[in-house]
């Protein structure tokens, strides 16, 4: 014990070595972003980070980002940012909802935005991404171009936002081809490239020839599986999701269901600056923030007649004449932020 103590003074010494000033507060308006995964995923997290940078550039505010590791980090990060003077904090994913609600109570002057969040309050704003509407259009394209009548969907973790895009995609497929079979697999991870490849390959073996994914960073494996099926002499098409992935695998992608996260983030930040931000925010085809984008490198992949029908469906959705099925996970705005209340203090 005593011997052990001898080396302890080293620890603060080590920390203090690099110490500069001790003011951590930022000057002027500042915006922060929390993600639970790496911003190098070319998908969900990357879009948010890009949005943050655009906010910095176009609004001229100070920006900061933290990748959190555990639920315990969520509270800590929200609180630390709020304490440091950040006025707008994005938690990019439904998992931030609880912590954002708690922080919202503690810091009424700070606005917390939760992507795919579920519980709005005065200063906690969930963004509901209408990606399912774009996914519906992609589903129409898939239903039109499948030769086998079997369509595949490979998902990451089965969370409502992902599940919702698949429900819509399936509805789109069925709208074009009522007798189509739709396969669904969730691999339980957002970054397991080999699992995504394996799941896609399995669906291809079952006869699927038009496949969409929602596996974020693991999509590289998904596209690779389709590419290898092609090399094996089978015709198959892939669909991209979240970002415009048409240039990620231009050889096999027919089109992408795109969500323009950067644009939504910038719009959200502008509204916050103007004092007009209110939640929850819905961002569907009507706002232009989501869309189905055919792959320009494969002009014939989706036939022109199909594109015409997709265009028509887009209009009907915006006019609310087609109700695209999905999962509604927003709770009523009333009540305690955390259902059970805060713990007592002893």
């Amino acid at each position: 014990m005593i011997r052990y103590l001898r080396c302890l003074p080293i620890v603060p010494l080590m920390f203090s070595a690099g110490c500069g000033g001790d003011s951590t507060a930022v000057d002027g308006p500042a915006v922060a972003l929390l993600t639970s995964g790496p911003v190098s995923d070319a998908g969900w997290h990357a879009g948010a980070y890009e949005g943050l940078q655009m906010i910095g550039d176009s609004l001229g505010v100070h920006i900061s980002h933290q990748q959190t590791r555990t639920p315990a980090d969520f509270d800590e990060a929200f609180i630390s940012y709020a304490e440091s003077g950040y006025g707008l904090i994005f938690g990019h994913g439904f998992e931030y909802q609880d912590a954002a609600s708690r922080a919202g109570e503690a810091y009424p002057d700070v606005t917390f935005v939760v992507s795919s969040g579920s519980r709005p309050s005065a200063n906690v704003v969930p963004i509901i991404f209408g990606l399912h509407e774009a996914s519906y259009l992609a589903g129409m394209a898939a239903g039109a171009i499948t030769a086998s009548g079997i369509v595949g969907m490979v998902g990451g973790v089965e969370i409502p936002s992902a599940k919702g895009t698949f429900i819509a995609f399936e509805a789109g497929v069925k709208a074009m081809r009522e007798d189509a079979t739709v396969l669904e697999t969730f691999i339980g991870s957002w970054d397991d490239v080999s699992a995504a490849k394996e799941a896609a390959a399995a669906q291809l073996r079952q006869g699927a020839d038009a496949l969409i994914h929602n596996v974020d960073a693991a999509s590289f494996g998904f596209f690779q599986a389709v590419r290898e099926a092609r090399e094996g002499g089978r015709m198959a098409w892939a669909f991209g999701m979240n970002r415009d992935q048409n240039d990620v695998a231009p050889d096999v992608i027919a089109g992408s269901a795109v969500i323009n996260i950067p644009q939504i983030f910038v719009q959200t930040a502008r509204a916050w600056q103007d004092g007009t931000l209110e939640g929850p925010l819905y961002t569907g085809l009507a706002t232009g923030a989501v869309d189905f984008v055919p792959n320009p490198a494969q002009p014939g992949a989706v036939p022109p007649m199909v594109l015409v029908r997709i265009e028509e469906a887009r209009r009907l959705i915006i006019e609310e004449k087609i109700d695209v099925p999905s999962i509604d996970f927003v709770e009523p705005a009333a009540g305690d932020p955390v259902a059970a209340g805060d713990p007592p203090t002893c």
Partner: peptide, 9 residues
């Protein structure tokens, strides 16, 4: 310096 300062703080 900034990074280690942040770590310590």
């Amino acid at each position: 310096a900034v990074a280690f300062g942040a770590l310590a703080r």
